[in-house]
Each structure stands twice: as C-alpha cells, then as structure tokens.
C-alpha cells in the first residue's frame, strides 16, 4: 500500500536471516538471507527442486524454518498475527471441492482475513464492495456468478488472484502464476499485476519463466540447491539462464525439466 513512510524506513515485508528448512532430514533451504522491502517486485527463479516453493511456504507460515529467523513487516513470524497483509495465490487453480461455488463465493472467502472476530456469515456493504472490486480488477465481473469450475484454467487463476486481493494485501505472493495459463490470460494477468505494482503492492512471484512480466520485474532472486545463487537486477544473462520462455506457450511443461529434484543438497 502507498505509505507516508519512505520505503527506506518502513520495515521490510520479509526478512530472513540464515533461513534453513529440512524435510525428514533432507536440507531443502540452507542459509537463506533475504530482505523484501515494500514496493519490491521480485521474481524468484530457479530450476524445479531448487527450493522456490519451500521458501514461499516458509514465508506464508505453512512450513516452519528449521534454523534461522523470519520477520514479517518487522515482527518475528511466530508473533505475526496480521496475516491479512500477505495475500497468497497458490499454484493449483482447482478450488471449491465437491460442491459448486461461484466466483463471488470463492473471492469472498479471501475477505475473511479482514473481518476477524465477527461470526456473521453475511457480508456487509463495504466487504461486498471490496469483493466486487477485486473481481473487477481481474476482469471477471461478467463471470462473478458463474460456478468457478466452469471457468478456464487462466480464468480460475485470475479468480484466485481476486481472492487474495479481496484481503487488500500489502504483499502478494504468487506461486507459478503463469503455469498452465493461455497467452490471452497471461496478458490479462500481466495487466492486473502492473496495476497492482502501480498501487504500491509488493509482489513476490515464484516462476520458472518470466514470460510476459519480465518488464515489471525489478529484482530477481535465483535459488539453486536451496541457496541464493543470485540476487539483483534481472540482467540479460540471468534471464537467459533462468527466465527463458516455454518452448510452446500452449502446452506448458509439466514436472521437472532437469530432474535434479531436491536431492544432493550439501549443508
């Protein structure tokens, strides 16, 4: 969000010091140092199995750090309660489960974080307006009352972005926002993201290809075998190595391209 404070004095949205994560003794992240300041637009790159998803899952509180420290907006993660400030767009775009649910119903569930304490199941006028605005931002107003399962993959991804936006986050974390999304939807997504960046939202995108958002990205972090291998401006050589486009945008790759996985990480 736009703030009176300059970005230099506001606490970083994310601060990780010597962060490590291990699953069942297998080191997935090791000694990660990371500061994401308000207004940053960060692409987290790296091959499959490099620890990208684990890093954002740690930031979201879904995976505990096995060593090191994590601060969110200046508060140690263990004491951080204002989860509404972090919006999360998961990689999956199938939500809703076994019962039909409309786009509005799913997006409205993202509003819950902003109205803690009340047990009223209905939404007030202000909440409904925020939900409608979030749906408008991703260009799904025409589909607001449609069952989310009837939407294309790219439209469902946009609905999940709207769900995150309904909570009016300061930091938006997106896991592979372009995977499985057709070109037209990629362009709509890019427009949405540019608008959010213009509003001052801090973006952290996990991706294996920068594709259409390359021009938005101000900073790239490359993970390799659980360590930060590069952190800086998206230079040509870094993008050529890690941010290359998919060979065919209509058939996004599935699974690992290099098969290294999470194995072979040395502490």
């Amino acid at each position: 969000m736009t703030s009176e404070l300059s970005t230099a004095t506001a606490p970083p949205a994310v601060r990780i010091r010597n962060g490590s994560v291990a699953y069942a003794g297998q080191r997935v992240l090791a000694g990660v140092e990371l500061d994401i300041v308000p207004g940053d637009v960060v692409a987290l790159l790296g091959p499959n199995g490099s620890g990208k998803s684990t890093l954002i899952r740690a930031i979201l509180g879904l995976v505990p750090l096995t060593a090191g420290s994590l601060e969110l907006f200046g508060i140690p993660a263990g004491r951080f309660r204002d989860r509404a400030r972090i919006g999360y767009v998961p990689q999956r775009h199938t939500v809703g489960g076994g019962v039909p649910a409309t786009v509005t119903e799913v997006v409205a569930s993202g509003r819950l974080v902003r109205r803690r304490g009340g047990l009223r199941p209905w939404l007030g006028a202000a909440d409904r307006a925020s939900v409608a605005e979030a749906i408008e931002t991703v260009g799904l107003t025409e589909k607001a009352r449609a069952p989310i399962s009837a939407l294309s993959g790219g439209q469902q991804r946009r609905a999940l972005i709207a769900r995150a936006l309904a909570g009016e986050p300061d930091l938006l974390v997106m896991d592979e926002p372009f995977a499985g999304v057709d070109l037209a939807n990629q362009e709509i997504l890019t427009k949405t993201l540019s608008a959010l960046v213009a509003q001052g939202v801090t973006l952290l995108l996990v991706t294996h290809e920068l594709g259409p958002v390359a021009s938005l990205i101000r900073r790239t972090i490359v993970l390799d075998h659980g360590r930060v291998a590069y952190d800086g401006t998206p230079t040509e050589s870094v993008l050529a190595l890690f941010g290359g486009p998919d060979p065919d945008p209509h058939s996004p790759p599935s699974g690992s391209s290099d098969g290294t996985g999470t194995l072979g990480i040395i502490g």
Partner: peptide, 12 residues
C-alpha cells in the same frame, strides 16, 4: 473446505 492450504496461509 475450498482450499485448506490457503486457509492456513491466511492464518485461519
């Protein structure tokens, strides 16, 4: 029910 992982990330 719609997305347990999201609910966790949202601190519910």
């Amino acid at each position: 029910g719609a997305d347990e992982e999201y609910a966790n990330a949202a601190g519910l």
